[in-house]
Nucleic acid binder design. Sequence first.
DNA 1: CTGTAATCTTTATGA
DNA 2: TCATAAAGATTACAG
Lengths: 250, 250
Amino acid sequence: MSQKNLLHVIIDKRERKLMEVLDRKKDKITYESKQLEIADILISNEVAIERKEGFDFIASIKDNRLFEQLLRLKETYITAILIIEGLNDMVFENTGMNINSILGALSFVSYKLGISVIPTRHLEDTAIVIERIAYREQVKDDMPLLYRSAPKKMSLQERRYFMMESLVDIGPKKARLLIDTFKTPYDAISAIKSTKIKYTRNGNPKGISGIIKQKGLKGFSWKFIKNNQELLFGKINNDKQKIINEVIKT
Amino acid sequence: MSQKNLLHVIIDKRERKLMEVLDRKKDKITYESKQLEIADILISNEVAIERKEGFDFIASIKDNRLFEQLLRLKETYITAILIIEGLNDMVFENTGMNINSILGALSFVSYKLGISVIPTRHLEDTAIVIERIAYREQVKDDMPLLYRSAPKKMSLQERRYFMMESLVDIGPKKARLLIDTFKTPYDAISAIKSTKIKYTRNGNPKGISGIIKQKGLKGFSWKFIKNNQELLFGKINNDKQKIINEVIKT
DNA sequence: CTGTAATCTTTATGA
DNA sequence: TCATAAAGATTACAG
């Protein structure tokens, strides 16, 4: 399998060691070093690789770095590949992390995120994999029998959920509920704006009134309204509001 | 996270050992044993898993069994998963096979065939992976999506900046500028709402008019307004708006 | 990612 | 009707 055409890839500046390994394969593959923002290795405009060493893989699960990086990778390139290097027994055991979490993350990335996971033993293996993939993409490109989903940017809808999650006292569930009910962030925020806190005769807050209540949304109570009105609209004169509520109270 | 719903999978008759392991997880997952022609484990009508132990994985590369099986798997099920079990250094070394061939096959299956490869250490890991995937497919179908782990301990002001950053075509600088100018997210969003896009005589968008323009904020173009109005308020009838803008154009 | 702890909502109950 | 307690969800945090 002689390769007349030299393979060529782009490698992130920080991957010094990988370059050293590739230097020993000069006759087969060349590279250029650039400052890459998203991937570690670029095979083509469509194929990008993120490389993670075993320990860093685990660490990146904890701080959510892994999913952020991989989602960006997937958004940007048609084919996103994750090479996990040296994920051996030792790595699994020498982390205070739950095995379920590690395997769960692995499964999620591979089967739910649709990112190609390739395990290797060490950097030398990784270099081989890179060379193989570059060969397929750049030389043996005559095999188009695979269908891969086009890069998927975050949809508007996802971004709307996303936006509501920057409120306080909220998580994915409530964020979704708000957008699903009110359709747009503006309408959701307007709903919060128009919501009033009800008070008991003794002056204790108890429940809310307004469109959110009317729609029967669960999980939104006076504390949520109070905190988020402050966030969204600034300090509110609660005394004044309280009086009003006394009057309009049903 | 109590699982009221019991997970259920179908396992090929020959996978005796796997069943033994799953028997110890009776409270979480049940299975039925059937004669399966194509896959080893069936999670649903759409998701099927092929399980291969390290040595058999290598052996199946040699005799071409691997690609035959996996291609059939991919043809039959929407999501095809390959669990490679115990592919450790020993397996790599104790086979007369070229390392390049093994890694090449691995790469091919994962990135070119588009099959989800999940490496595990042993059968126990495999059982966990099966349970995790079944859980996602059968219970957690209403995906939490990608949600950003919003920094919970943030001052109100920081959170306002943060909220603006979930707009499109914006970064930390513009987000800050918006809040510093309009004080609250609601006022900032209202400013975007009331902003109009100006058009040239030929009907091409050019510049904006409104409070944002008046305040002299830099970096907010008609594209920014258009994209974020869509995000915040939903589709806008641009034709109608265009006409209005023609009239009010300064 | 997962599992568990902390927190908040809602429902139930008694005064 | 209000206040309190228990039950049920959701979110926060650590690993």
